[in-house]
Structure formats: C-alpha cells, structure tokens
Nucleic acid binder design. Structure first.
Lengths: 329, 329
DNA sequence: GGCAGCATTGCAAACGTTTCTGACGTATGT
DNA sequence: ACATACGTCAGAAACGTTTGCAATGCTGCC
C-alpha cells in the first residue's frame, strides 16, 4: 500500500541503508547519490513508517497530555499552545480527557502511556504513590499537583491574588466572599493563598464551599454573598463567576455597582461576558512551553533531582470590579 | 526497559507464539496453559508494544480528528464525545488543530496521517481535489464539507433555523438581521438556509457581512442592527451573538426587550450568558457517533459509493428572545 | 489396528526501519 | 612503497508482534 524505503532504494539503485542515511544523516553519503535518493523519495512520495521507526528507535516522538476536562474553556488554549510547542520540536501531542474521574484517569494512562515518550498530567486525582511509581517508569511532568520525586510545573496564583486583593482594597472593599469550587480535589493551595493575601491586606474574607467548580455553584453563591453583606466576590474560576453574575442580575444587584466580581483563569468566558469579567490570568503559552520543554528534557536525560518550575499569574482588571458601594443599605 | 512478550513466554515456560495466542485468541490454547500465561503476563505487567503490533498488523488502532480551532468552544464537547466513542471501539483519538489556515492543515495532515487509520476533517479549507485524492489513499470522513467521492457527515441547520424563524415570527418580529461570520470559507450553506427559512416565514431579512466569526464581529454588528431598525438578530454563532449582546448593552438597548438575539452552536457561552442565550443546538454526541462509526466502518471495508449521513439541529429557546418591541420608536 | 482428524504447541518469517560491521577503493603520510 | 586513514556504500541484525506452517500426540471411527 504505502511506499517503503525498499522501493525508494530500488528506484535510486542503492541499498536501503543508503537511503536511510541519505535522509537522516546526509553528510554520511556522497552528494550525487544523495541527490538521486532524495529525488526518488520525492517522486514516490515516500515518508517513513512511524511504527517501524518507533519499534527500532524505542521512542514514539509523541507526548501525552492528560487533562481533567477539555470542556473547561481553560484548557483549549493550553492544549493549543502545547501542541504548537511540541510540533516545533518534532513531537506530536496526544490529548486525553480523564473526565474528572480517578478510574478514567488510570485507564487513560494505561491506554496512552505506551504510545508516548512522556506524559504531562494536569491536576491529577491519583494518589501520590501512583504518580511516583508512574514517574519511575516513564518521564512525567505534573501540573498543579505534587508528588515525591516527580517533575512539576507549579502555576502560582499568588501574584494574581495579591493584585486582586490590592485592587479591591483600593476600591474601598472591606468584606469579600471567596467561593471555593475545589470540590474534594487534593490541591488546597488556591484557598490558602487567598486567605493569606486577603489577610495581608486587612480585608475580611468569608469562605463558602467547597462546591464543585460549576456555573450552578455561582448561582448558588450569589444570594449568600448578599446575605453576608459583602461587596466583592472572588470566584474559584471564571465559570463560577459567570454563575454569580447571572444570579446577581436575577436578584436585581448591579455589577459592579453593588457587588464587584473577580474570576480566575481568564478564559473566553471572561472576555465575552457583559460586563467583561475582571479575572486572574495564567499565560497559556508560558505554562505550555515550560511543561513541554521540561518533559522533552526528561526524555533525553533524567536528572537526579526532579526539577520544579514556577509560572506566575496576574490580575486583568475589567468591567466587573469598581468602587465599593457605600455602607448605607 | 518495558516487559516484552518474550519475557512473559519465558516466565510461563512456553513459546512467544503461545503467549500471543493465549492473549489474543484464547480458544486456540489449552485452558491450563492459558491460565499460566495470563498469570505470568499479569504478574510482569505485560502490555503489548503498540509500535510492534502496528508494524505487523498494518494498522494503528488510532483515528485522527482535524479541527480548525479547538479554542472555539463548539469543538471541545465534540472532541470529548468522539474520544469516548472511539475508545469504546478500541481506538485512540488524535486531535490536531489546523489553526484555520490551509497551509497548517496540509502540514498537519502530513504529520498525522501515517499515525492513524483514518481521518475526520471538520470544515476543511483544502481544495476539493486534494480531499478527493487524500480520501483515495486513506479512509476520510468530512464534516461540514463536501468533496467528490468522499464520505461525509452533514450537520444540517435547516431544522433549527426553521424553528428559529417560527419562534421569532410567533413573537411578532418582522425585521431580522443575520450577521454572517463565515469569512471566506467555502461552505455557504448557512447563509442560504437562513435566507430560505426566513423567506418561507415571510420575515424580512437583512444580511450583513461576511465577517470573521469573532466576538468583535458582534460588537461591530450591534449598532447596525439598531440602525436597520430590526428587532431580532440571528448571529453566525454564539461567540458573535455574545458580541452583539455586549454591545447592545453598551448602547442601552435591552435584551430581549428591545432586541431579541439568537446564536448558533449552543456552546457553553450560550448557557452562561446573562440573560442566557437562545441558540440552535447541534447534538455533539450525535455528530461524534455518526462520524466515528462511519470512519471505523470505512477502515473495515470501502463501499463503492461514499456514504453521506445527516444530523439535525433544533432551537433551544432561552432568555434572549421575547416579544418584539411595538413599533413606536 | 490403522488411519484420519483434531487439539495444542513451537518455529520461523514478516512488517519497515535504523545502525553496526565490514568491504572496497582511494588518498595521505612517512 | 607500504601502511594507515578515510569516504562511501552494502549486508545483516535487531526492535516486538502476529501468524502460516509443521510437528506432535491423542481421540475416535471403521
């Protein structure tokens, strides 16, 4: 069916090994034969069979990305950036969606791990020892998750949250609500950072939740915000923030007149909402580059100490934040 | 590194061929040896090397999906559904984003086509003859695009658009604007269907565009809608509709009080907007199943006539449509 | 009792590639 | 002039699977 290296060899009147060298290590073959070979390859439309190459080389030139839910608008830009980055280094990126379920994640890893040279796992739900033992068998980069001896890209919300606190403080807000949408996931850092930043700025913080990170969570939270007489809300992510906006409107509260709202992630939701949503941005290109480069590095050589790299965040002030309502209810 | 079939064979005290048969065609091997083999395989954690298997079998057990932009919230649910569907039939799904550029699409096809048994190409920008010749070399299913002799899933907006026209008519609307966001893409069917449906319902239709399918297009369109004294807008997709909503609010027009807005795609944007967006829904699970099943069918046997399957659409009435404003401006 | 047939297993080939080893010829250095 | 080195190429092995073919031993039938 497809054209093989053997047919190219025959067409060029040389051996298969010469064809292979002419294409892979051109300086090892005489200029004129090389010409003949590439001409023949071109003419026949030859391209090497990746399965055969993988079998021989022991590597697939592919990377795997495991994410909890591609439907979450936070991920597509990340995937796109990673794919771009991987492609430029000769790798194909394979995504898989674990559907927020631990069982699916395990199954997906099993299905995909043999087809790739390394794995980027975002916010894994697996127990730490599984991750450690997986990383012992193949290159693994964790994002937003930590495990002993496993490389990691840590996206830190610290800066963005500090800026959000500063921003709200400057607008005169004093009582804020944080809507925790972390569910029962292992990573508690978001909640901790927020507590720290708001304390540091002398803002009183009311945490509600944890709930699941869904639109309905925001809908649920909106009346609670009003009941707590808070003037600002920091939501677990943009989706939850959209729920808050939606329900505040239904309750007749104006944004940002009565309540200011801040999201996290700077997804497309934030930029298209009305008013547009103030949010904390994590640069997808940066996380993507860091994670991909780190993983590719790992496939070449395994350092003794698993590297950890940080990426930052920043506040994008938009239309849902403004001066606090005077206390005159 | 990884455990091979040979090691399993040694551990079980049989030949490699027996191991292979015990795992792939169990009825061909004696029950007790089979037990011994599976036990050994289990114990060593054996799983077959996909590269070797592909090489031998000539198939990869993978399918490719080519989409113009994963960042468009329309696609993630489709991808997810396709991945699910493919997985249940033993296939891995490989997505690639062609970034809306013809050159990238070609390059991506080249990169991915050898790694998969077939390709689903969504809204291809390639010239028809390229698609036809590609489909001659490997199984291809086109979505929202047509090419001679190539299988196709056609998602028809006809029903949804008819329902939208009916819906607007019932609410007393008479002058509607269609914001065309098709850019310079080949497929003109959307515009045609809309013209037909609105004519059929005796609604006057003003088409503006074509523009690119972006948020800003909606922002641009909003004042034009008012200038045309239309009371309803049908946008090219939800994203454009969000732009319209955003700018109508900025212009002081209320939705749906002054203007009704209808989107297309039923993305997450539609469900989280305020008010929530009336839109035309295409069921992702249905397109996904149809496309995947069709493609897998094609990998088994190539029918003489390339099959074409249709999937429908329907209106989801939500908060952005209502009774038309009385003509009393 | 002999022969056909079946169940069970091992051997070896094949898939397409890369790379090691070696062969051949020519140029170079002493 | 001879040995060494080098450039250039062909041959063959190897990667891990699956599967066609053959070998073995047993059963059952006439």
């Amino acid at each position: 069916m497809a054209v093989t290296i053997g047919e190219v060899a025959k067409a060029a009147g040389v051996s298969v090994s010469t064809v292979s060298r002419a294409l892979n290590t051109p300086d090892l073959v005489n200029a004129v034969t090389r010409q003949r070979v590439v001409a023949a390859a071109e003419k026949l439309g030859y391209s090497p069979n990746p399965a055969a190459r993988s079998l021989r080389e022991g590597r697939t030139e592919s990377l795997g990305l495991l994410i909890p839910d591609i439907t979450n608008p936070f991920f597509p830009p990340i995937f796109k950036a990673m794919q771009e980055r991987a492609k430029r280094q000769g790798y194909t990126l394979l995504v898989a969606d674990s559907d927020e379920r631990e069982a699916d994640e395990l199954e997906t890893i099993a299905a995909v791990s043999k087809k790739v040279d390394g794995l980027i796992i975002w916010a894994s739900m697996l127990p730490e020892e599984r991750l450690t033992e997986l990383a012992a068998r193949m290159p693994v980069v964790l994002v937003n998750r930590q495990a002993d001896g496993v490389s990691e890209v840590h996206v830190s919300l610290t800066d963005g949250i500090a800026q959000a606190a500063e921003h709200l403080k400057a607008y005169g807000h004093q009582r804020c609500v944080f809507v925790d949408g972390n569910g029962n996931r292992p990573d508690q850092s978001r909640s901790k950072s927020i507590r720290a930043a708001f304390d540091a700025h002398g803002l009183s913080l009311i945490e509600i939740g944890p709930y699941e990170p869904r639109f309905e969570t925001g809908v649920h939270a909106a009346p609670l915000v009003l009941a707590h007489e808070a003037t600002a809300v920091l939501a677990h992510n943009d989706l939850v923030a959209m729920g808050v906006l939606h329900q505040l409107a239904a309750l007749g509260a104006s944004v940002p007149g009565d309540v200011s709202v801040v999201g996290i992630d700077d997804t497309i939701l934030a930029s298209v909402s009305t008013p547009s949503l103030t949010t904390i941005r994590i640069d997808p290109d940066e996380v993507a580059s860091r994670a991909v480069d780190l993983l590719i590095g790992l496939t070449h050589e395994r350092p003794a100490e698993a590297p950890v790299v940080q990426v930052g965040s920043r506040l994008i002030p938009r239309g849902t934040t403004g001066p606090a309502r005077r206390e005159s209810r």
